[in-house]
Simulated assay, not measured.
Amino acid sequence: MSTTNQRAFNFNAGPSALPLEVLQIAEKQLINFNNTGMSVMELSHRSKDFEQVHNEAIARLRQLYAVPDNYEVIFLQGGASLQFSMIPMNFLQSGEQADYILTGVWSEKALAEAKLFGAPVAVASTKDNHYKNIPSVHQINFNDAAAYVHLTSNNTIYGTQWKDFPTTIAPLIADMSSDILSKPIDVSKFALIYAGAQKNLGPSGVTVVIIRKDLLEKAHNNIPTTLKYSTFTENNSLYNTPPTFGIYMLGEVLKWVEKQGGLEKIATHNEAKAKLIYDAIDGSNGFYIGHAEKESRSLMNITFRLADEELEKQFLAEAKAAGFVGLNGHRSVGGCRASTYNAVPYETCKALADFMHAFQAKH
């Protein structure tokens, strides 16, 4: 456990660590928000107090990412998994092609949903290499006439991440659930960005969508009301009751990012944190084995194994006893995974690196 505040060394992949400062603010305001005599969870979503929370969160996200004026920012529910269906439901006709780039389980799931609505094609996949790398953009044959191109920017299970995004003729759509807000990006390269909040943005329950207006205008009309993006853009995300507490927390996280110096500072900090653990892997002479190829390594999810399976189990057991939480790899692949999202402190990553060095020396 951390000696300063008795909080766990939290490496959970999601829901994940939240900034302690944000949690402390929420604690103070939980019962009486803004002198209303109510918790933010008790406020009407139509009230002026919540409207201010809601609009400020959108404005801060726009400012941090320099979102151009020709984009809408909306808050939805259902997580990234619902977006897997909403995207083809809104933008893919029967028999029409969409290009999907497969880099892990979540992009596979997105493709499977798209097949219910059109004729999506996997234009690139690294599955044969056990998803150890991101495909080379120069080797992908995109269909310029495709309805859209879909990719997953960071892969939590396999620990890979796009460093540079492709430039496409067809609208580019990205699932950024696990690395949104971790570094600057050029929003104008994308027609639609979506992300579940539970990694870097806040608690689970909120989904952020940044959508370009010209793509929005191409959406189909013959779909259920609450599955249309336009329903929410036309109502400032307030068509029905939104996840009010989640949006409040998201807004506080955005304030925290501003206090850290913005996305450039956050990115530098994330690189330093990840380096501690990758250095422990690379300097272990094969005791720890990283899953992802070096040029594709994620700064958010560090995946590795130990050469000996029994020793790996012992490593995880001893790490848990030492106060480290969430180091087990995804149930589908096993191994170890350290998720070093924005709110995971440098000191927590150093503690893990020190533990890895000590465990190796002992064994």
Rank of each mutant, 00 (worst) to 15 (best):
182 S>A: 09
127 K>S: 05
325 V>H: 12
166 P>Q: 15
310 E>V: 05
351 A>P: 15
247 I>P: 00
135 P>F: 13
184 P>G: 07
45 H>K: 12
348 T>C: 15
87 I>M: 13
351 A>C: 15
329 G>H: 14
16 S>F: 01
175 D>H: 11
290 G>D: 07
181 L>R: 09
311 L>M: 09
291 H>V: 00
11 F>A: 12
255 K>I: 07
273 K>D: 13
74 I>K: 08
326 G>R: 02
338 A>E: 04
30 L>V: 00
321 A>Q: 07
192 L>G: 03
148 Y>S: 02
227 L>R: 10
361 A>K: 13
19 P>W: 05
136 S>L: 09
225 T>S: 10
140 I>Q: 14
142 F>A: 04
109 K>A: 02
170 A>M: 07
256 W>G: 05
363 H>N: 12
344 V>T: 11
345 P>Q: 08
153 S>Y: 14
202 G>W: 04
357 H>D: 15
41 M>K: 12
195 A>P: 06
19 P>L: 07
21 E>Q: 10
45 H>N: 05
246 G>I: 02
321 A>E: 12
180 I>M: 05
314 Q>F: 02
304 F>D: 00
248 Y>H: 05
361 A>N: 13
34 N>T: 03
166 P>C: 15
58 I>M: 10
156 T>F: 12
35 N>K: 13
109 K>S: 07
136 S>D: 10
152 T>D: 15
210 I>N: 06
144 D>C: 07
272 A>V: 06
331 R>N: 11
233 T>W: 05
193 I>M: 04
297 R>E: 09
269 H>T: 09
344 V>N: 08
356 M>L: 15
205 G>N: 14
205 G>V: 05
290 G>V: 04
155 N>R: 15
146 A>C: 07
40 V>F: 14
324 F>K: 07
253 V>R: 00
310 E>N: 11
312 E>A: 04
338 A>L: 12
361 A>F: 15
228 K>N: 13
325 V>Y: 09
319 A>G: 07
31 I>M: 06
7 R>F: 09
1 M>A: 08
151 L>V: 01
42 E>A: 01
88 P>E: 11
308 D>T: 05
324 F>L: 03
